[in-house]
Amino acid sequence: MDEQTLSVDTALNVLRAIGEATRLRLIALLAESELTVKDATEILRQSQPRISRHLKLLAEAGLILRFPEGSWVYYRLADGATADVARDLVARISKEDPVLAGDRERFKAIRKAKAEEAAAYFAAKALTWDQERSLHVSERAVEAAMVAALGDKPFNAFLDLGTGTGRLLELFSDKYASALGIDASHDMLAVARANLARLGLTNAQVRHGDIYALNVPPRSFDVVAIHQVLHFLDDPARALAEAARALRPGGRLLIVDFAPHELEFLRDAHAHRRLGFGHEQMARWLEGLELDVEAVTDLTPGQDQASKLTVTLWLARDRRIVTDLPLADATREVA
């Protein structure tokens, strides 16, 4: 059977699973973003056991996938023809439907509250943010691995998402012709601007922005970096999609974040939304964005640093060929 088609029995199972009001509302939300049970209970205003039961039925029908992470569990729509039926159905429902519109508004409110929580944390920690990275293997080792991953060849335009104090703009200042750092925290940007001025980096600038909706031209950067940012986000896949959109054909995406861990205190003490990312999960996201993973590096603490976290670097390349560009740009060598 063609993998893009469904058997009659599978189609009927899918329709039965979707054919209930709460489950249809859940599918509509999951078509936009991943959710936890806690998120869903707040949005749908139903009990946790009821929401969990409906999510279990959707998972059994192959419509959604379940990803445990510490004491939390994230749910997202599955890939393939089975979940495509659900996506198509949701797309055909009127945006004016009062029930689904109410769900979306409550979802937006939850996202806003989480974003404000993270922003408040960043504002309070802006001046000491770099020191807090001592939770993992030494920053010197991480930076050395990042430099090695990108190599010696210079490149034209560099974009640093979640730039924080602007450290990566400094680290790669001998490689790029121009650079832009984007961050959601005005306090962080104030620190970054002061650092750039102190270093005399006139070919780099920072800008306030939303990592989920980048105000940059598409296909405009040779290298995009996301350094220790994804674990603060509710929807990392969405941020990766925006990063990929900013890449020129043949451009590279450098991601640095924690490997999976179980330090639950980081959620409350440091506003972490995710407890790290596994190789398979990241590979699936990048493949879905038509990015080829070129290298994966795990920086594991030594025996004398057993309490620290492993940091993983992923280097991926946009698989579009450079000749997709206009002739004048196609002749430029991409790093």
Results as ranks from 00 to 15, higher is better:
Glu105Asn: 12
Lys56Ala: 11
Gly209Pro: 00
Lys175Asn: 05
Arg320Lys: 08
Asp235Val: 07
Arg198Ala: 14
Arg66His: 11
Gln131Leu: 12
Ala330Gly: 13
Pro49Leu: 07
Leu327Ala: 15
Asp174Val: 10
Ala204Asn: 04
Ala101Arg: 15
Ala81Pro: 12
Asp292Pro: 01
Arg87Gln: 06
Thr323Tyr: 01
Ile18Trp: 10
Ala78Lys: 03
Leu263Ile: 09
Asp298Met: 13
Ala59Val: 06
Arg245Phe: 08
Leu196Asn: 09
Glu105Arg: 11
Val216Leu: 09
Leu291Ser: 03
Ala204Ile: 04
Val229Ser: 00
Leu15Ala: 14
His231Glu: 14
Asp2Phe: 12
Lys153Phe: 00
Ile43Phe: 06
Asn195Lys: 15
Tyr75Lys: 08
His227Val: 11
Ile321Ala: 05
Ala243Lys: 02
Ile64Leu: 13
Pro218Glu: 04
Leu299Thr: 15
Leu291Asp: 04
Val8Gly: 09
Leu325Cys: 10
Glu60Ala: 12
Leu150Asp: 05
Ser134Asp: 14
Ala21Phe: 10
Glu96Ser: 13
Asp222Pro: 01
Glu3Ser: 07
Leu159Val: 11
Thr312Gln: 15
Ala194Asn: 13
Leu55Glu: 04
Phe122Ala: 00
Leu313Trp: 12
Phe107Pro: 00
Leu57His: 09
Ala316Thr: 09
Ala120Met: 12
Lys114His: 12
Asp152Val: 03
Ala246Val: 05
Ile64Met: 10
Leu57Asp: 07
Lys112Ser: 14
Phe122Pro: 00
Gln305Pro: 01
Lys175Pro: 00
Leu189Gln: 02
Pro249Thr: 02
Gly302Arg: 09
Ile93His: 07
Arg92Met: 10
Ala86Thr: 09
Gln281Pro: 04
Leu30Asn: 07
Val85Ile: 15
Tyr74Trp: 11
Leu313Tyr: 06
Glu170Gly: 14
Phe277Trp: 12
Ser52Phe: 05
